[in-house]
């Protein structure tokens, strides 16, 4: 890039350099992807799901795929989400 180009950029009040845009885009997408990598399935999640299922099964008859355990990252904090779908007939009975 020559002085003339620089001068023209300056006079036009040119927009952000593409390298700066590239860096910002990478920082955002990689923060997201790293969070997914590290938090989406910690080692203990399958075991936790099994044990929860065993406890619930003592009281209610639930199918294995009716229970979902998920760990999500929301900014500063992690959310452990437990979702149990109860069978229809138990509730109506």
């Amino acid at each position: 890039m020559s002085l003339i180009d620089n001068l023209l950029d300056y006079l036009r009040g040119d927009t952000k350099k593409t390298a700066v845009v590239a860096k910002e885009r990478l920082q955002i997408i990689l923060a997201h992807e790293r969070a997914g990598r590290n938090a989406s399935s910690p080692d203990y999640l399958p075991a936790l799901q099994e044990e929860l299922l065993a406890v619930i099964a003592k009281y209610i008859h639930v199918e294995r795929d009716m229970i979902k355990v998920q760990l999500e990252k929301h900014g500063e904090y992690d959310v452990l989400e437990l979702n149990i779908m109860l069978p229809e007939d138990k509730r109506s009975a």
């Binding site: 890039m1 350099k17 593409t18 390298a19 700066v20 590239a22 860096k23 990478l26 920082q27 990689l30």
Partner: peptide, 12 residues
Amino acid sequence: GEMLSVDDIQEI
């Protein structure tokens, strides 16, 4: 300003 610098890449 057309290419990521070594410092940028290292920082990322």
